[in-house]
Nucleic acid binder design. Structure first.
Lengths: 333, 333
DNA sequence: GTGTCCCACGAAAACGGTTTCGGCAAGATG
DNA sequence: CATCTTGCCGAAACCGTTTTCGTGGGACAC
């Protein structure tokens, strides 16, 4: 099932067969047709390896992740895989599991396989060490920001997403807005808090208490909601750092007899549909657009392969998904 | 950075360099050392493509999935990727998204890339059409059962997992056990119901009502729990078809003032930790061992590559994870 | 009829490795 | 000293494809 078989079957040389199959101009239409027919009859599979070996492009990229099992890598991978497939490229997947030795090993492996480029997927939108010096092919960082500003990083715009959420609450007449979120060791938590703060300042509102930093769990949401309600019983909206926290907050509000959204509106973050849609009531939340982020990373990688490498940090915008937990706008009082 | 560079630098022929780097016997230790040193100095990366091209093994397998975004594919992928990495192999990832045309396209692509074998990952442990005729290399089906009994399929043992759960409840003194689960169009739902039925029959118990088939959601769990409690107020345990349903059931029980596990014990299924651990109380549940399933698939694929192809259906056992929702054994009455 | 041009095609080189095979030298054996 | 064995090494073939370049012939103009 090699090219010479096809050539023999079609009565031409391998050179001609190669040109015919690759759509090059210097071959007569009748001959081309004969070759194509022969290839079809023999169900010939061109050997992409040899092709890549010669032309230098394997049409393969390595995707290096730290925590594939996490919540976010999956969606990015999905978007990237799709975008690559559309560009007739394939993805070699490697999960370093946060282990530097594994990462080194995988970088070597992927380079040995002659990948055309790398996508390094982070797990928390944080700053992460640049690997570019060790890698002689283009690299794009996704959901992570490389320490080296000469690298290209695509990150989620947490601050912008938080502004979407906050503006939604403010425009719906909420005035006393609390914030319950994850650990302040996470940049995502800090950025989201900052986005909220900015919007409140612009609207001339003061936040209902300091942001409550804790952990990214339903349990913390339940606990923190009690704290917040005790300190600020008049709170009329809670912006939560993610959907799990929001689900916990909703639990507590229900337990304490507050109606959602009538008394208190809730906004989550991440649009993790299992939580957001199944929450009581379904959560208004911010979608990170991670699939799009993966696709964007691929686009820029392909551009880099063509010699148009980008530089700096690109922020992928989020998208507000409105469900019932914020309800209609309150009447002006 | 090619082999001839290394050879030149070491003052030997490419042939000798090749043998030295590949650890073949017919090269003097001193020469080998010289070559290795040269390779290190030039930081030579052997070109795995050319190697594969010649020896016929690319040490790459294609992983074809239908629904990568789903709950289950991820874990299987994780286990498979890890097992392949340990065997110095890499995985090319393709997500057909349930589209037959995409699937065909990806099969062609993967074959063109000369993968050594395929792992076809299903999304629901169901029977799924055999692709083996179109694929001239070994294929293993994971979390799906091929229609062709001559293929090798690795599936989750849903009936066995349900037995684990049911035996746990029975041995803890529960006697009136209800079942709320997903659509009966899912084999997983039917198998799990069957496992429960078997155990109850063996223990001489009759089920608390017919299994309630619905959907795999928290919402359905909440609704069905009301139905079940209305029909069988004396129920003392509910085995749920998955953890989302269980979380919904727990919601309703709490709303109706039943204590978990004192009045009613709950067992879930899937060990989806976000739900199971964050539930009130944390859920006893059955872990599908999907990572192990992925690893098992890889093992069998590697065996098939060595000419020891297996046949038939292998059931991957589940594992009971005991948390608080089933509590200690009830005192005998 | 002759000269020119262009087009289709094929021979051959290249790519980066592995593998086969032959040769050479050193040591063992008679 | 002659012969045989053994161990190392390199020349060359090979893999399947692309690409370059040369060639032959047909078409067209004059």
């Amino acid at each position: 099932m090699t090219l010479s078989d096809v050539a023999g079957h079609a009565g031409v040389s391998v050179a001609t067969a190669s040109k015919a199959l690759n759509g090059r101009a210097e071959v007569a239409p009748s001959t081309r047709e004969r070759v194509l027919r022969a290839a079809a009859e023999l169900s010939f599979q061109p050997n992409a390896l040899a092709a890549g070996l010669i032309s230098g492009r394997t049409r393969t990229v390595g995707l290096l992740t730290d925590e594939l099992g996490g919540r976010f890598a999956m969606s990015i991978l999905l978007g990237a895989e799709n975008a690559l497939g559309n560009g007739q490229m394939s993805v070699l997947l490697c999960d370093a599991r946060g282990d530097a030795i594994r990462r080194q090993h995988y970088i070597r492996t992927l380079l040995a396989r002659q990948v055309d480029g790398f996508i390094v997927v982070g797990d928390s939108n944080e700053v992460s060490p640049s690997l570019t010096q060790q890698i002689p092919v283009p690299v794009v960082y996704a959901y992570a920001e490389s320490t080296d500003p000469r690298d290209l990083s695509i990150v989620a715009d947490d601050e912008g997403g938080a502004r979407l959420a906050a503006e939604h609450l403010v425009s719906h007449g909420r005035r006393r807005i609390g914030h319950i979120t994850g650990p302040d060791s996470y940049r995502a938590a800090r950025d989201r808090a900052a986005g909220l703060r900015t919007v409140l300042a612009e609207a001339g509102l003061s936040p209902a208490g300091d942001p409550l930093f804790g952990e990214w769990s339903q349990r913390w949401g339940r606990h923190a909601a009690r704290l917040l309600l005790a300190a600020r019983p008049d709170v009329d909206a809670i912006f939560c750092g993610n959907d799990q926290v929001a689900a916990g907050v909703a639990d507590t509000l229900r337990d304490l007899g507050r109606r959602i959204p009538d008394d208190v509106a809730i906004v989550g973050y991440d649009n993790w549909e299992f939580f957001a849609e199944d929450c009581r009531p379904p959560l208004t939340t911010v979608d990170l657009n991670l699939e799009q982020l993966g696709a964007t990373a691929v686009q820029h990688l392909i551009a880099a392969l063509d010699g148009n490498a980008g530089v700096g940090v690109i922020r992928q915008q989020g998208r507000l998904v409105v469900r019932e937990s914020t309800g209609p706008a309150l009447p002006r009082r």
